[in-house]
Amino acid sequence: MFDFDATLPMMAIQFLLLTAVLNVVFFKPLSKVLNERQEYVNGNNTEARERQDKAKRLAQEYADKLSSSRRQSQTILSEAQEAAQKQAAAQVADAQRRLQEQTMSVQQVLEQEKQAAFGQLEKEVGALSQQILKKLLGSELAH
């Protein structure tokens, strides 16, 4: 069981050779691959993070723009509404004023015609009463 012989040093040398060969064909190339992959992953990661940051910034910007333009449109809308209301009020007032004027002028005309009609009626009333008087008392008073 315990017979030592030249197997020992030869196995040692063989193992050292195996280490050297595996270092060249196994450890170095695969370590390189692993490191490169690590770098690739890290690079992609940072790039993705940058892109995410940029996307977030853009989204924020758009949101800002959106809210500001919404505010703007709100003000424009309210201004327009105000202007329209003012215009409407003015037009209504104008129309009322014109209506009043017309009403007044029409009333005046009516008043004048009434006066004229009353004057004429009074005249006719005088003549008619003269005639009635003449008819009733004509004969006696006719002379």
């Binding site: 069981m1 315990f2 017979d3 030592f4 012989d5 197997t7 020992l8 040093p9 196995m11 040692a12 193992f15 050292l16």
Partner: peptide, 15 residues
């Protein structure tokens, strides 16, 4: 197995 020979294991241990 090569490792069931004492020469191999002693060689590795000395290394």
């Amino acid at each position: 197995a090569p490792t069931n020979d004492i020469n191999t294991t002693v060689a590795l241990a000395l290394l």
